[in-house]
Every structure is written in structure tokens, then in C-alpha cells.
Design a protein around this nucleic acid. Structure first.
Lengths: 218, 218
DNA sequence: TAGATTGTTAATCGATTAACAATC
DNA sequence: TAGATTGTTAATCGATTAACAATC
């Protein structure tokens, strides 16, 4: 097994592969080629093979990839082959949605602690989870050995929550607030900002009566 | 004004610029340099200047960019300088969250039609919006000239909803379901899949007692 | 065996960054 | 004017794709 510097683009494709593999497994499909996988995902087969080859030799020449085996291997690579506790701050609508779903990657990741500042929300229950005051954050995060935090508070509060997460020892943050957040270098921050996706969608809408943006003019 | 083929990476950075500019405007900051903007976003200043230069000359040498003017210009580029109606299918927790927020890009984008298949949800109200039966989809989408659709149904139903959107004339889809969806070439699909972000976050977590993945071994 | 498909190297393509003349 | 900063070209870097020997 060889290890090289793996680009973020590669890592972000792994969950997508996993998603398709899970679907195939559900449909009792045992084997898939990079070709077929590429078709499903609009991805170049060579890219898929190369992505996987960074982590090992998972396929069989002439045959393709064993769906169950590859799925298992990708889970190992992503380190979601074990239980991971996650904390969430912000028991609003979005927080509720995430807690109610709460079956991330075959239950390996679970939101196990929810916090809010609003006294009317504290001590209410979301799907068997008690909403705790934010003052409990550090204590609970230590107790449950939590390394991942989710932020679902309004934008103006997001940075403060991020700071508290970092202070408590969280190493990865998923931010849903539509704002830029700064964290120390050693902490990883991912943005789940659908505003970005929504606005960029508007860019690609070509309405009648307008010049096309596709035209190349110098 | 010159037009060249604009890469998706560039387009997806525009909403991020917009976000920061809005924040600056709120704080009554009138001007910002690519340098300062780059600091805020961990982006190379040259990249920011180049991104903007694709669309026109918005800055002033020696001065920087006028915050209000650039913000306005980016809104024009993204075409969110006008009212855009959006449809949403799936009045679950996530759908609720999106409808309750419903102030995307300074109110220019608004969810104006919500659908569900579940009879117990139909005719309920979410933030002044009546949940309609999915059978009304095509009619309402035509009536309101909707070109963007949001999918917040469970994964197994997502493809079906996408097909209905396409059939109704929707040109851009934002999919929140953690599954791969296929649409015709002329329809644009963006994924707001936080599962991807969450799983890839786990990859970057370095737990004690494990070899580092950063080491380069041949 | 013949056909299929991997893992991997080399070639290509595209995106990011550095550098700098123009100019506020 | 001197200092700052843009817009843009050229250089660099990295990611994607093509091609193919190895082999199931």
C-alpha cells in the first residue's frame, strides 16, 4: 500500500463512490467496472481507477471491483468504519432536520450532543436527544470524545460557536451558516452552504430575450 | 466587456465574494482590495482579480474595489439582481428549514411553491406557504414561471421528483437527497449533499495511536 | 484462448499563482 | 510625487485523461 499526498478532490469523490456502491449492494449487484461506475457518475473511468489506486489495489483485472469489498475499503479509508460521535449547535429547523435524520454512513456517524443558547429550547427533546445549554459544550465534548462539530446557528453567531468548538478540542467542523468562518490551521472546516449552490444555479439559467453567456467575444 | 468560457470554480466563488461584500457593507466598509479579500477567504489575491476580470473591470488601480458597486455587479452576473421564484418538493424537516429561512440573496430568490405527496402534509402551512399536492407541480411551475427546483425528499424518491421538475420545465435543480440523480444535459443539477462533506471530514481526522496519512511512503 | 478491465505511466488540459506595466 | 493596487500576461502547478502492458 502506497501513500502519496491525496488531493481534496479525490477525498470528496470517495463518499460519492460509496453512495453508488451502497445502492448497488442494495440491488444485489456484486461487481462493477470503472467504466460502468463512470457512466453512472459522469466521471472518467480512468479517474475513478486512479482515485482508488491511491489507497490500494481493490479491483481485479478483467473483472472490475467487488461492490461489497470496495465499499468496505472506502469506509476504512474515510475512517467511517467505526463509531464517530458528532456535536451540533443550533436547535433550529435545520438542526432538527439533521438530528432527525441522524443516520450518516450506515449509523457510523451519529449526532450525540445538541446545544443551543435559547432557554426556551434547552431541555426540549429532538429525537431522543436532549438539547443542552451551550455552557455544557466543553464538558460533553470531552466526555463523549467528540472530534466533529456541526454549526447550524444564524450567521452572526457562527464564528463564536466555531471558537468554542475549537477550544473544546473539536478537529473538524461542518458549517451550515452562510458566512465565512476562520479556524486554526490544524482544524478542518467544511462548508455545507447551499446558498452558494443556489446562487450559482441562477448563473446558469438562460432566460429568453437575453444574450447567451456562452458566446465567446473578444 | 469580454466573455470567455467561465469555469465552474470561478462561478462558485462569486457567491462567496458576495457574502463577504455584504458583510463589509453591513459594517460600513466602503472599499476593499483583492489583497484584503484574499486574506479573509484564504484565497490568492491574483485569483480574485482574475475571477472578477472575466466579467469586467470593477476595480480602481491604487484603490481597490468599491464594496457596494462590486456587490451590485456580482449580483448582476449571477442574475440574482431580479426576483426568482423557486419550487421545493419535500415538506419534511429540511424542507421546513429552507422555507422558514427563505431569504436567499437579499430576498431576490424566494421559495414560492411547496409540494409533498403525503396527504397529512398537504394543505398545512409553512411560513405562509400552503403545501400543495405534487399533482399541482406542473401547473404551479408554469403559472409562477419557476425555473429552479429544490429536492428535499428521501433518496429513493429524488430521481422521480427530478423527472417531474424537468418535465415541468425547470432548468436548474438543487438536490439535497444523498443520492445521484441524472437529468438531461440542458438541465443543471447542483448537489447540496452534506453527507459528502461530513464523511470527507472524517478522513481528515487524525486520531492518536494511528499512523499519519500525511507520511509519504513509496 | 479472446475479451475485458485493472493499475499506472505519460500526455494533456486547465486552473492557480507570480510578476509587472498601467494608473489611481 | 510615492505608494498602492488593479488588470493581464506568462510561468507554474496540479488534476484529468489517454494509452497500454499486465492479467483475470
Amino acid at each position: 500500500m502506497k501513500q502519496a499526498k491525496i488531493s481534496e478532490a479525490v477525498v470528496k469523490r470517495l463518499p460519492v463512490y460509496l453512495q453508488v456502491l451502497n445502492e448497488l449492494q442494495f440491488r444485489d449487484i456484486l461487481t462493477i467496472s470503472s467504466q460502468a461506475l463512470g457512466m453512472k457518475l459522469d466521471l472518467n473511468p480512468a479517474q475513478i481507477r486512479k482515485d482508488l489506486a491511491y489507497f490500494g489495489e481493490f479491483g481485479r483485472k478483467g473483472i472490475g471491483y467487488d461492490v461489497a469489498y470496495l465499499s468496505e475499503k472506502i469506509r476504512e479509508i474515510l475512517k467511517v468504519d467505526r463509531k464517530i460521535n458528532v456535536a451540533l449547535v443550533g436547535a433550529g429547523n435545520l438542526g432538527h432536520a439533521l438530528c432527525n435524520y441522524n443516520r450518516y454512513s450506515k449509523d457510523s456517524m451519529k449526532i450525540t450532543a445538541v446545544f443551543d443558547t435559547n432557554p426556551t429550547k434547552i431541555d426540549t427533546k429532538i429525537n431522543h436527544l436532549l438539547v443542552l445549554p451551550i455552557t455544557e459544550l466543553k464538558h460533553k465534548i470531552n466526555e463523549q470524545d467528540i472530534k466533529i462539530g456541526i454549526i447550524t446557528v444564524p450567521a452572526p453567531e457562527a464564528q463564536k460557536v466555531a471558537n468554542q468548538f475549537v477550544e473544546a478540542g473539536v478537529k473538524g467542523i461542518l458549517n451550515f451558516a452562510p458566512t465565512v468562518i476562520r479556524v486554526p490551521e490544524e482544524v478542518r472546516i467544511h462548508h455545507a452552504d447551499f446558498t452558494k449552490e443556489l446562487l450559482s444555479l441562477a448563473y446558469y439559467l438562460h432566460r429568453e430575450g437575453e444574450e447567451s453567456d456562452e458566446s465567446i467575444v473578444d
